[in-house]
């Protein structure tokens, strides 16, 4: 499984790794939603440092989780995306979640 979860207080850290596509997203979604609903964290960190590929199915995965988290007023951030992941986030208008919008 390419998702690991760690909990620190009210913050849930989700470490993703490998390739996020339509094939892998279904399993990731199922696992992440289970954890989210169990702990309803106020802050969720998606750590992308080990993700080496993501297509628009990954965008669907992120946007779907944002919707779930906003259900209890929680916030989400994305950390350490590689350049190709950042490019995909930017195309989807999600670069703001990385906390460092790059101009260009």
């Amino acid at each position: 499984m390419s998702v690991k979860i760690s909990n620190s207080g009210d913050k849930l850290i989700i470490f993703l790794s490998g390739e996020i596509d339509h094939h892998s997203a279904a399993e990731m979604r199922y696992f992440i939603d289970g954890e989210l609903e169990r702990s309803t964290p106020s802050v969720v960190v998606f750590d992308f440092s080990e993700v080496d590929f993501m297509d628009s199915s990954g965008i669907g995965l992120v946007m779907g989780r944002l919707r779930v988290i906003s259900g209890w007023g929680g916030k989400a951030v994305i950390e350490n995306p590689r350049p190709n992941i950042r490019k995909m986030l930017k195309l989807a208008g999600l670069e703001k979640l990385t906390g460092q919008e790059q101009k260009k």
Binding site: D55, S56, L61
Partner: peptide
């Protein structure tokens, strides 16, 4: 959870 961004990509 399709994002509708495939063709845009």
């Amino acid at each position: 959870e399709r994002s509708g961004l495939g063709f845009s990509v």
